[in-house]
Design a protein around this nucleic acid. Structure first.
Lengths: 150, 150
DNA sequence: CTACTTGCAAACTATTTGCAATATC
DNA sequence: GATATTGCAAATAGTTTGCAAGTAG
């Protein structure tokens, strides 16, 4: 069984993502399928425009692309990142709490499972009266391949 | 001397910021002064539009506001943050490496001196071949005052 | 069938650019 | 006086909205 699947899927597959959408009470439409297919398996960060470009020959409207991406973000299947270069883009996300390293040159995204947060700084914030809700942590660097290329 | 100054200034004052601009080889103009004055002393995050609104009665052009903000970011006097609610805004920054907690309700920004980063995750990124350049870490929560208000 | 969802186009928001005029050094 | 910088207006980028038509459940 499962012949051809040699790797553990770190990220949700197309089917898993569609299933999640349904479970969350959303209808399964061709627009959503198109967006999910355009997004699944990506290993770099991508923008709304990237996805739009990939699905527009399937006559999926601009709005539906953004609406579906929002949905996927809400479900935690993809996340938003903000490269220092500016702008915002999306990345596929594994389902547990994690962070990303993003290559400044090619946009490659690597998941870093686990979380170094929780110590002194959180304590400081709490003693200043904050009730913490979450955090955003992103690393930036240059990936192996891009270092070679330079 | 220095009568009236009872507090240690955590962030650069108007004069300090202007001085930095000059040191960096930039001219001292009224547009820049206006932007710096609009920005100094803020304890919440603010957007380009906020600053624009505050200086436009001084006939400072839209473009100059954004150009000056960029300059201040380059000099490290202010930083960009990306609230989960979306969008991007600026915060005053102390001069050393630090992070922020941001109140989701009122936008209050608190500096957290120091940095919890450096351990396991960086190691993972390095062993995956990344040459790290930096990171972005922001905490989100609700400040004391907003908890009371709710 | 019924309500959710869509595609389209227009509306928006936020920021950037081109350029002649201006002000700083 | 040379050049960095400006204000303005138009341009651009990216995303959102309003709505009649379409379609999944």
């Amino acid at each position: 069984m499962l012949s051809g699947v040699e790797m553990v899927e770190k990220h949700a597959t197309v089917n898993t993502m569609l299933l999640r959408l349904q479970e969350a009470g959303h209808r399964m439409t061709s627009a959503r399928r198109a967006v999910v297919e355009a997004v699944a398996g990506r290993e770099r960060h991508f923008t709304g425009a990237d996805v739009l470009a990939e699905v527009e020959d399937r006559t999926v409207g601009r709005a539906s692309v953004f609406r579906t991406l929002d949905l996927l973000v809400d479900l935690g299947l993809i996340g938003r990142v903000h490269p220092p270069s500016g702008g915002s883009s999306y990345v596929l996300c594994p389902q547990d709490h994690h962070h990303h390293v993003i290559c400044s040159k090619c946009g490659l995204v690597l998941d870093l499972p686990g979380c170094p947060i929780g110590g002194e700084l959180e304590q400081q914030a709490r003693s200043a009266g904050f009730r913490l809700q979450g955090h955003r942590l992103e690393y930036y660097g240059v990936c192996e391949r891009c270092q070679e290329d330079s």
